Amino acid sequence: MTYRRLLAEFLGTGLLVTVVVGSGIAAQRLSPDDVGLQLLENSTATVLGLTVLILLFGPVSGAHFNPVVSVADWWLGRGSGTGLAGGELAAYVVAQCAGGIGGAVLANAMFAVDAGMASTERTGGGLLLGEVVATAGLVLLIFALARTGRGALAAPAVGAYIGAAYWFTSSTSFANPAVTVGRMFTDTFAGIAASSAPAFVGAQLVGAAVGVLLVLVLYPSAGRAADAVVVPHPEPTELRA
């Protein structure tokens, strides 16, 4: 595990949360009386930002930016010796969560929002089911692309999926524990109260398990492609120059 991979995961996750939170703040200020338009602005920025971040950091770390993706990568690849090792998984998750918090703090600072924990409660079985659906679909999409040699399409495909899931899920598709943790640190349109976050993370873990099960049924040998998740990334020595 090189520092470059961890730095890429830290920066990528952090900037993703900055995009989500920053565009949420901007949307709330630009369209204060139209929640639907706020969500459209927020989701559009997220689609574009996530696509760019995967293209930017993918060649270094694979652009997981998401603990459930890293866990699925470790779980599916462990039998074939591909994907993340246990120690690498732990390091990725720490870097992602730290990045998520930093990204929210950065967005708050750019828009001169007072620092503080989010107060927006997001509760209810429907929202949690939305997180299960969103996360399961994300895991299935990523590993299906990797297994079929279409990892180069991951950036636009993942961006498009998350953008669509903003609208077809009741929860607006957090689908990411690190992003959920980060969004606890902004009391704005994109925030989530600390009391709501554990249930969201739990639903995301359930969704990840469902996604992995679907991958194993539909693509039984997907673990062999774990090194190409989310996008193919060479060994660190190949990046020296």
Rank of each mutant, 00 (worst) to 15 (best):
Y3L: 15
Y3H: 14
Y3K: 14
L6Q: 14
L6M: 14
L7Q: 01
G12D: 02
G14F: 01
L15Q: 01
L15F: 08
V17T: 06
T18F: 13
T18M: 10
T18A: 15
V19F: 05
V20R: 03
S23G: 00
I25T: 04
R29E: 15
S31D: 03
D33P: 01
V35M: 03
G36H: 12
G36T: 13
Q38G: 04
E41M: 10
N42S: 13
T44D: 00
T44N: 04
A45L: 05
T46P: 05
V47N: 04
V47Y: 11
G49M: 00
G49T: 01
V52D: 04
L53C: 02
I54C: 10
L55A: 11
L55R: 09
L55F: 14
V60E: 03
H64I: 10
F65E: 09
F65I: 11
N66R: 10
N66Q: 13
V68K: 05
V68M: 15
S70F: 08
S70C: 14
W74Q: 12
W74F: 15
W74N: 11
G79V: 02
G79N: 13
A85N: 13
A85W: 08
G87T: 12
E88G: 02
L89H: 08
A90M: 09
A91G: 07
A91P: 00
V94Y: 00
A95E: 07
Q96I: 11
A98S: 15
A98F: 13
I101S: 00
I101D: 01
V105M: 13
L106Y: 00
A107D: 11
A109E: 10
M110R: 02
G116L: 03
M117G: 02
A118D: 02
A118L: 07
R122H: 13
R122M: 14
L128C: 07
L128F: 08
G130Y: 09
E131M: 06
V132C: 07
A134H: 05
A134F: 08
A134R: 01
G137K: 06
L138M: 14
L138A: 06
L140W: 00
L141G: 06
R150E: 09
R150G: 08
G151E: 04
A152G: 12
A157Q: 06
A157G: 06
I162T: 04
I162M: 11
G163Y: 08
A164F: 07
Y166C: 10
Y166Q: 08
W167Q: 15
W167K: 05
W167G: 09
F168P: 03
T172L: 05
F174V: 15
F174Q: 10
N176Q: 09
N176F: 07
P177R: 12
V179S: 11
V179Q: 13
M184C: 11
T186F: 06
D187K: 05
T188I: 12
F189P: 03
G191C: 12
A197Q: 03
A203I: 10
L205E: 04
G207S: 05
A208S: 14
A209F: 01
V212Q: 09
V212K: 09
V212M: 15
L213M: 13
V215M: 09
V217L: 14
L218C: 12
L218H: 06
Y219F: 15
S221I: 07
S221R: 12
A222E: 04
G223L: 11
A225W: 06
A226W: 03
V231Q: 06
E235G: 11
P236H: 09
P236K: 03
E238G: 10
E238D: 14
E238T: 01
A241W: 08
